[in-house]
Amino acid sequence: MREKKSSSILHSISAWLIMLPGLILFAFFVWEPLLESIRLSLYTAKGIHLMDFVGLKNYIAVLQHPDFLPAIRNTFLYTFWSLIIGFLIPIIMATFITETVHMKSFFRVGVYFPNIMPGLATVMMWGYLFRPGKTGVFNILLSALGIQPFDWLASPAWTIPLIVLTMTWKSAGSTALIYMAGMGSINPELYEAATIDGATPWKRFLHISLPSIFGLGKTLLILQIISVFQILYEPLVMTNGGPNNASISVMQLVFRYAFEDYNYPMAASLSVIISIILVLLTAVYFKATKGKKPEYSTN
């Protein structure tokens, strides 16, 4: 009995030791900064040195700031448009490439290619394409067709969808690869059986592919919401949040507080608010989709 106990301790010691470097790194680089930023959000500061405890005053200041509502509204709009434009495109791409017989690798590399480009280079390139006036690439194409130049990013109604389009262009390929991997692991016999039963490609997609990647889609959806919610450099570089706050995001507001105003407590408060919104969104989403995983349908 004693021997068994000491062996289990030894066993768990080695498990703890294996985890320890990871735990230390996590504690140092993730948990400590996280807790520290919550603490910072409750104080005033000179630079990064905490001064006086002020409770929720920074939160109130953030919520009352004139740019807060536009930023929050836009961030939800970014998320909305990214789901409209960006969520289905990788699934469609993955389905087509999986169904492709010839040059499959070529298409796989092709869709992933934009992802290799550095983010800033991507947004600057799109900035040139979207340039208003007669020197913008798209406007040159439009003028060749006899159409008047368009304002693109300078048009408040179009700014967010266009920025989301550039983000989708860059990242859809990598998401498509994940879906392709998911689809690749589906038992081919299911497709064969369905084909024998006379199922059309659409029905095969609907009843075999889609249910198989449902779990994957669920995870990728929430990851996409989290990542788009933190959108920063695209509007920062392409529009600087304008025109008239039409594209400012909450993370850009955090950036302004921290790196333009040196107001770290307000930046920390807004970061905490963003985290709370994201945690709530994730919880609601998982609650809503809990137990709704569809089973394979073979009929």
Binding site: S14, L20, P21, L25
Partner: peptide, 16 residues
């Protein structure tokens, strides 16, 4: 094997 893993863990922590 267990002994080796413990040694390796110590080495990692030490380096950290």
């Amino acid at each position: 094997k267990k002994f080796l893993s413990v040694v390796l863990c110590f080495a990692m922590i030490l380096s950290l």
